[in-house]
Design a protein around this nucleic acid. Structure first.
Lengths: 119, 119
DNA sequence: CGACTATATCGATGGTTGTCAATGTACTAT
DNA sequence: ATAGTACATTGACAACCATCGATATAGTCG
């Protein structure tokens, strides 16, 4: 359905745009749920490493073939983590030929960063 | 032991001070582990609400008695979440009489925020 | 002392999650 | 067409986690 699509497209930015910084005023339950979902997507060592490799790559984009080797986990597990990051709105996927490229969503991390800042 | 004590005192700030922003260069495995541990402590709706209530309170400090009611969870669960936040270095506990007060650790959220920012 | 209050800890339980091996899909090249 | 490569999906399993009821600890007030 349409709403579901929107949610899966921009959840991080939605979660971050929803509200003032954490320290400004108490979060409502829905706000806390959204924010927790975004943070949970980030709260895994493998996903953090994947994201940092993608972000530090040329054009903030990396091929899966360059992501499978550096981490010490199997290829299906890498695929799983990339899916989680995609559904959370941190990266987007584009297929070119046989290869799949994952690209950082501009502003996604920044939006989350702004929610955590206290000032 | 001494090292363990240090780690449990300032883990968030350690994790954040360790390295350049996520997007600058790939995280090493230990860096990713530390950062994931901090994020995991935050990645729960109940803990986010607790933290936001504490942060928005007078002096960034709140009594447990004011934290048990607003959330719809039992008192032992609140106690559990406050322990997680404490061990992660986001808050500190001080007992005054019968009451326990939890206070935001200055700079803890900001340190984490800086790791996520892209610029 | 004994009753009461505030908070922490314990043990159990149901749900979630990271990981893998096996398999599926889709594209490429010979 | 056949084989090979790149990646995704499925199913299973073990580890982890949020929550609760029961109980323990510790402080306060009679």
């Amino acid at each position: 359905m349409y709403y579901r699509t929107m949610v899966t497209l921009l959840p991080v930015i939605d979660a971050a745009a929803c509200c003032a910084p954490l320290a400004r005023e108490p979060l409502t339950q829905p706000q806390a749920d959204d924010l927790a979902r975004s943070l949970k997507a980030l709260a895994d060592p493998a996903r953090l490493r994947l994201l940092s490799i993608i972000a530090a790559s040329e054009g903030s984009e990396a091929c899966v073939c360059d992501l499978t080797e550096p981490l010490n986990i199997g290829q299906p597990t890498v695929s799983h983590h990339l899916r989680v990051l995609t559904e959370a709105g941190f990266v987007t996927r584009s297929k070119r030929g046989t290869w799949a490229y994952y690209k950082l969503v501009p502003g996604a991390l920044d939006a989350l960063s702004r929610v955590l800042v206290s000032a």
